[in-house]
């Protein structure tokens, strides 16, 4: 049900784009919605971060995953239990760039006996890495449509990405990798009974959406080849706030489908779980040092609480205290 609704939502975006482009609504799909989406993205992203930031971090609660800094001769694991800010930055960098926690993933299996066995399970990490890095590279490649002259970073990335030099225009490795990793990520949501059980529409929808974007993109490059110059004219125009006359560009319905899917992704982003992009940096179990006993963490809004006053306790147990012979002096 969740998957079906998500799939239908993505398909209807494609249909709407085709119909709209055919019905002379190019300006809506080529200019108005992209601007609105980007505005939604920027405002939404900032608001969400601000909302998170407004909630304070009353306690320093890192999840420690290794030996803490302790006695000098005990080997400290700085990435697992960072003690300084530098070590926190390193831990975070490995987390954000290489998904280090996911790399630890294991699979538990209960065998007869009972006997629980644990094996390494790197598949989710591997396909997650392929997916995210491919997506980033494809994003960088697309900067070609928004820059003149095209920066060396973009042409460099393209050169590496088309290294295998298959087909004309050359097939980008990341195009294939993105589709393969997406297929795996979607597949496990259907095939793994546990993952299927926890999956919601919000999990299927972005996967289908990005799959739609990637497949229309491949079609535009290799099969129903689009007018790249026209696309660039639109990209530069949007960036310069002087969009071209879309009727004259004559971009295809397929192109508008690709664009509307991207537009939907951009607008959907700040409202969704995709905000893990920003959230991963703010997680108090990861971005704080485990130096709790060395450096005091201050709660910005400490709550006053009632405690059992010493004098009251003394009074309540005065007989027992006399029996024990405690002096209980105070200065």
């Amino acid at each position: 049900m969740n998957a079906l609704v998500s799939l239908l939502a993505v398909l209807s975006i494609v249909v709407i784009a085709f119909l709209g482009a055919g019905a002379g609504l190019e300006v809506l799909f080529g200019v108005v919605l992209p601007y609105a989406a980007i505005l939604t993205f920027l405002v939404g992203f900032v608001l969400r971060i601000v909302k998170w930031a407004k909630s304070p971090v009353p306690f320093r609660i890192p999840t420690v995953a290794g030996q803490a800094k302790s006695l000098e001769w005990i080997k400290h694991q700085p990435l697992e239990s960072p003690y300084t800010r530098r070590q926190v930055v390193l831990r975070m960098a490995l987390e954000v760039l290489f998904f280090r926690s996911l790399f630890r993933n294991t699979k538990a299996e209960l065998k007869g006996g009972p006997r629980l066995v644990y094996g390494a399970d790197k598949a989710l990490w591997l396909f997650g890495m392929i997916f995210h890095w491919s997506f980033l590279i494809i994003f960088i490649r697309h900067l070609r449509f928004f820059t003149e002259p095209v920066p060396a970073l973009v042409t460099g990335v393209e050169w590496v990405d088309s290294f295998f030099d298959v087909g004309l225009p050359a097939l980008f490795a990341t195009s294939v990798l993105l589709l393969v990793s997406l297929s795996w990520l979607i597949g496990r949501r259907f095939l793994d009974p546990q993952v299927r059980y926890i999956s919601q529409a919000a999990d299927y929808f972005p996967l289908f959406l990005i799959f739609g974007i990637a497949s229309t993109g491949v079609l535009l490059r290799h099969f129903a080849k689009t007018d790249v110059a026209g696309v660039k004219e639109l990209g530069m125009g949007l960036l310069g706030f002087s969009p071209p006359n879309l009727g004259e560009l004559g971009l295809s319905g397929l192109f508008y489908a690709h664009l509307l899917l991207v537009t939907a992704l951009i607008a959907y982003f700040p409202l969704s779980k995709l905000m893990h992009l920003g959230g991963v940096f703010m997680s108090p179990t990861r971005n704080l040092a485990n130096n709790n006993r060395a450096v005091r963490h201050v709660n910005p809004n400490p709550q006053p609480v009632q405690v059992h006053e010493f004098e009251h306790w003394k009074e309540e147990f005065k007989e027992e205290i006399a029996e024990a012979g405690y002096k209980l002096e105070r200065d």
């Binding site: 930031a53 909630s55 996911l102 538990a108 926890i198 779980k273 959230g279 179990t285």
Partner: peptide, 23 residues
């Protein structure tokens, strides 16, 4: 939600990847 960033964030960013399940 207003008092603990951890709570607000943990409510928002889970992607339900399922890595935690058998842990």
């Amino acid at each position: 939600l207003e008092k603990y960033r951890s709570f607000r964030l943990f409510m928002d960013i889970c992607v339900r990847c399922g890595a935690c399940a058998d842990k």
